[in-house]
Design a binder for these strands. Sequence first.
DNA 1: CCAAACTGATACGGATCCGAAACAATTACC
DNA 2: GGTAATTGTTTCGGATCCGTATCAGTTTGG
Lengths: 109, 109
Amino acid sequence: MSVALTTAQALNLWHSVALAMVKDDEPDLSVRQLSILLTIYLEAPPHTVRDLAAKLGVTKPVITRALDTMGKLELVSRRRDDKDKRNVLVQRTVKGALYLERLADTIGG
Amino acid sequence: MSVALTTAQALNLWHSVALAMVKDDEPDLSVRQLSILLTIYLEAPPHTVRDLAAKLGVTKPVITRALDTMGKLELVSRRRDDKDKRNVLVQRTVKGALYLERLADTIGG
DNA sequence: CCAAACTGATACGGATCCGAAACAATTACC
DNA sequence: GGTAATTGTTTCGGATCCGTATCAGTTTGG
């Protein structure tokens, strides 16, 4: 699943994708937000605020705020855990899946 | 020079790199800042504020501020153009080259 | 020589984000 | 049952960034 790239390949790849993200009309997601989004979509659920904070090495408010922002954009959604009502389960959305599909096209195309 | 990736490969690649950038102690560069940095290092000089703004599709203050920030981090430097003193030439630095070398390792490793 | 054009930088009000600390709600445990 | 621990959220002051508009300095061109 991993890919080996030369230095020039790696930087050119990042350059073209970063440029595409900036020139895009949509508001840029920060690196942190994108990390959260990709974690939710690529790793197995459940995803809680605490887990995401630990995985990214940031504080919990960072996760809460990122979920607020991406929630408004409908890229993710939140739901209380019925088993343990302290937990919040972060869930995928159709819009989020489409967003990442387009991102993958930009990267891999 | 370009690389074709499957959707899963592309997203996993982005995921691991974004995670590495967040967990890194250094302050995260925004996507815009990284775009500017990569443009300076990958495309032929000279690079002016105006050119960079046009290339990224953003306003000039965005470039000025990004150069301020990355200048403090010593990732880029500025110099007046002697030929036309209205222009500012954006130049590479040793620290910037090292930063991108490590980024390339993260991407391609 | 002087007004127009062009460059990058700055001022401004508003939005967003940061980490630390305090908070309310829920659960665990003795 | 009641205290302690755990969860996600909110608040706070401070920092950063945004786009628009304006600015100062330079060059152009009649």
